Amino acid sequence: EPLWIRPDAPSRCTWQLGRPASESPHHHTAPAKSPKILPDILKKIGDTPMVRINKIGKKFGLKCELLAKCEFFNAGGSVKDRISLRMIEDAERDGTLKPGDTIIEPTSGNTGIGLALAAAVRGYRCIIVMPEKMSSEKVDVLRALGAEIVRTPTNARFDSPESHVGVAWRLKNEIPNSHILDQYRNASNPLAHYDTTADEILQQCDGKLDMLVASVGTGGTITGIARKLKEKCPGCRIIGVDPEGSILAEPEELNQTEQTTYEVEGIGYDFIPTVLDRTVVDKWFKSNDEEAFTFARMLIAQEGLLCGGSAGSTVAVAVKAAQELQEGQRCVVILPDSVRNYMTKFLSDRWMLQKGFLKEEDLTEKKPWWWHLRVQELGLSAPLTVLPTITCGHTIEILREKGFDQAPVVDEAGVILGMVTLGNMLSSLLAGKVQPSDQVGKVIYKQFKQIRLTDTLGRLSHILEMDHFALVVHEQIQYHSTGKSSQRQMVFGVVTAIDLLNFVAAQERDQK
């Protein structure tokens, strides 16, 4: 057995438009009618409502009807409940999964919650491996369901041993009777949507819809739904939504950006999952974080739909894509998950301010006199920076000697690579993860907040409520011999709460 199987392995699926269902090699399930009293909570997966979006479509000038398939009504709160249950049931049916076995899954959280929910009911041990950027709410729900959680670096490539995929496979090879159901490759993922989600949409719309818009992560949702719609409703256009920084969209030119990270969760990847059939997507749109969270908040405030950030991405694209539809036509959007997962993220004004998705003037509360002053007023001194090749031991000596707790790590040209902190280095040394002679590049981390000289002290204040420091950066445009230009970030300084307090105190003292 291989040590790991690539999540982007070539698909062996034989589905073709027009091929009889009787030739399918898979076990198919028909939607079942729910009894009045459910035998367990797993029976509350599927049969989610279709809700008309009344205000947002009109606000953006849509002539067509805009409908939302509300997947956050599933038992675990997301569309991923469907595939989690289906993968477990299919693994039980073919004898792969037996009582007492362990389920391991690399996930952005929602599939993990679905699997942990099913594992709690069915009696399996469950280990979820997820990147650090995923919300604390997801972690809390997983723990409450009895799952064990392993976190991995957000910026690790999918084929790196440190990625959530790599760590999951390492655990599988170490733990007896453990299984990775593997949402990236498992046919049960798109089949769950082909058999149930798509049929529900067709039934709820009486077979009449002209466009379907869905955000894409593993691709199982859009693949399964689109294949069924292509068979039953061939005139329906399928629109895929991919965040900026991901590479799922086609044509490839759409993916060209210097951005590699994004805040919206559960969609987009740096590889093409095996289950994603991009041939059934008629057109791709890219979405960005700001519009995703703005539209998610709009869905909550104006439509009462308590959905997550990827739902915002989907609707932001839908109001663009559906401009081509006329009166009497219908566009369906998939709202994948609930706001429950993001209470401390985009639902929080403070978080939105820190990330730059909300401006101070958007909030009406009274601010102190210094709130709208610029960061450049602080008069920061030149920063202490270190090269990635310097040793951890030497870096600790320098920081202690100069009285700093942290320093930016830059390359020879001064471009920011990340940050090192005294606390992080000492804990890594004590844990045996690094040696004093190791290069400081081994303990770089990139989960820090950046701020510009033109940003306000109010925004800085919000950042420092949650973080010990902020890195002050400025952009530099560099022209190359080819005539092309590129933008790079340079370090201007490091600012802490002490710097802000000293500035405010000094100004008030001078005024007296």
Rank of each mutant, 00 (worst) to 15 (best):
D289F: 02
E508M: 02
V332H: 05
Q439G: 09
Q256V: 14
T385C: 02
F346T: 04
C392V: 13
M419A: 12
N424D: 13
K449G: 05
S437L: 13
V332R: 02
F492R: 12
L471S: 11
S287K: 13
H474S: 10
F503G: 02
R350S: 14
Q256A: 09
N255M: 02
L373V: 13
L422D: 10
H462M: 11
V317G: 15
Q326L: 02
K512F: 09
L500T: 14
D499I: 02
T454M: 13
T391F: 12
A301K: 02
L453I: 14
Y269V: 02
I463N: 05
I477K: 02
Y269M: 02
T421P: 14
I398Y: 13
G441C: 08
P336T: 06
L363D: 09
K446G: 07
G403L: 02
V280C: 14
K345A: 02
A321C: 14
P388V: 11
V409I: 12
W369Y: 05
L373K: 06
A296C: 06
G483F: 12
E412F: 10
H468S: 14
I396L: 12
V434D: 14
V415S: 11
P388R: 15
A497H: 02
T279A: 11
I416T: 10
L422E: 15
K484A: 02
Q302I: 05
L353R: 08
S427F: 11
I477Q: 02
T389H: 14
W369F: 09
K433A: 11
L460D: 05
K283F: 09
I267C: 05
E365F: 09
A316Y: 14
N288F: 09
E465L: 14
P388D: 02
F469H: 10
G483L: 09
L430T: 12
T294F: 13
L429A: 02
D289L: 02
A431T: 14
E244M: 02
A318V: 04
I416W: 02
I498F: 08
D270L: 02
V315M: 09
A316S: 05
Q447A: 14
L378D: 04
K359Y: 02
V494P: 09
Q450N: 15
Y479S: 12
G432Y: 05
T391S: 12
D282C: 11
E360V: 11
T314G: 12
T294V: 11
R297T: 06
K355Q: 09
A311E: 04
A505D: 14
D242L: 04
E397W: 10
L429W: 09
V375R: 08
L471F: 12
E327I: 02
A382E: 08
V415I: 14
L471A: 06
L254W: 07
G493P: 11
V280Y: 10
F357A: 04
V440G: 10
L417I: 14
C392W: 10
R459L: 09
Y479T: 14
L422Q: 06
L399P: 04
T257P: 05
I300P: 02
A497Y: 09
C307S: 15
M490P: 14
N424G: 12
L353V: 12
T454C: 12
M298R: 10
G356I: 11
I390L: 12
L325R: 02
P251T: 12
E412P: 14
A249L: 06
G414P: 02
Q476R: 08
Q406F: 02
P388L: 14
R452D: 09
Q507V: 09
I334V: 11
L305F: 07
T257E: 02
D242T: 07
V410P: 02
Y342L: 08
G393F: 13
D282P: 11
K433D: 02
S310G: 02
D411W: 10
T257D: 09
V473W: 07
S485Y: 10
Q256L: 11
L353I: 14
G308R: 02
V415E: 13
V473K: 02
E290F: 06
P388C: 05
A506L: 02
I451N: 13
D270V: 04
Y262L: 05
R459W: 10
C331L: 10
A301F: 13
G356Y: 05
D455E: 15
P436E: 13
A413M: 13
V420D: 02
F295M: 14
E377F: 02
T261I: 07
D455Y: 11
N288I: 13
M425A: 02
A407D: 02
I498M: 14
V420H: 06
P251N: 04
F295S: 14
S381F: 11
